[in-house]
Design a protein around this nucleic acid. Structure first.
Lengths: 168, 168
DNA sequence: CTAAACTTTCAAAATAAATTGAAAGTTATT
DNA sequence: AATAACTTTCAATTTATTTTGAAAGTTTAG
């Protein structure tokens, strides 16, 4: 397989994959392109390579910067901005976990806390089932939160150690 | 907060949440409704409660069954089918992890394995960067796969034990 | 076997999300 | 201060996803 073929395959597959993670195709593709680029790229180059519009490129680059997955770089003698991706995949994974935890787990916990306050008596079947579900959900989500919060503080080697200890 | 208010809030929030996990709003809402229902519900009741069409209800119930989150139940004397959700949230979480692992992690590993075969020389910067990225990705995804595969074999209490050992 | 009860399918319609591109906004250079 | 280089915004458009609902299919009861 030729380099260009492999590159296109990776970018396109990463784009498809992104969709199932709630990340837009373009954002995933910009990320993929920067991940495999040895040098930082300008918005112009990204647009041309991926055949996407200026607006799209700009928006997705900004989002990737917000996610902490891409950095702005200053190239001496060049006026325009260049961008490069975080290449340490473990850091990338941690960043993604961190962002999703903040965006998804925190709101669930807030919601569940709120919903526990529902009025009702213990003898009402529906009320009981509701409280049970909310309580059990909270317990599981709390544990996931705990695990993820700790995981993003580990380095990759420590994680490996932990995994082996855990599932020996 | 009244029961009905809390119920609606939960169903609506679960629907919204589902979206960010690549699950359609209706599917998440059907799941939420069944999760808090003490009794199993017919397709008819689900349609009416959530104000969704027959086809939509049917499709999403089937999908939830495929995911192993909902079961068909036979009610004596009734001809139509009734449905109920798995109420053990740890089992629910494990099912979701299991399905997503199969649908998302397996294809990535296949892709990365394939992409390692790219032609090229070690002196080519682009080729080297590509191989590095693919290799590092594979290493991280492999570890995630290992951790998830093991996690879905644990029961909830064992998981708690493991978490404490891990992050003492 | 036939009709009624119920379930599934799927093309069309509705909705939601992503993308474009040109105009407006900024910043640096002379 | 004027202009060129570059970045951002956003309304309009395109594309993708979800939902509908009526028709077709299936199963059970009589």
């Amino acid at each position: 397989m030729k380099y260009n073929e492999a590159k296109d395959k990776f970018i396109q597959a990463w784009g498809t994959l992104g969709s199932s993670w709630g990340i837009s195709r373009s954002m995933a593709q910009v990320h993929a392109l920067l991940l495999i680029s040895p040098d930082s790229l300008s918005a112009e180059e990204i647009m041309e390579d991926l055949k996407i519009s200026r607006g799209n490129a700009n928006m997705n680059i900004r989002d990737l910067i917000d996610w902490g997955l891409v950095f702005k770089e200053q190239v001496p003698g060049e006026r325009k901005e260049f961008f490069s991706a975080e290449k340490d995949i473990w850091k990338v994974a941690k960043q993604i976990i961190k962002e999703r935890r903040k965006r998804e787990i925190e709101p669930i916990l807030t919601l569940l806390e709120e919903l526990k306050k529902v009025d009702g008596t213990k003898t009402d079947k529906k009320h009981k089932a509701f409280i049970d579900t909310i309580t059990n959900l909270e317990s599981v989500v709390d544990k996931a939160d705990f695990a993820l919060t700790r995981a993003i503080k580990l380095d990759e080697n420590a994680l490996v150690g932990v995994l082996f200890k855990l599932f020996k």
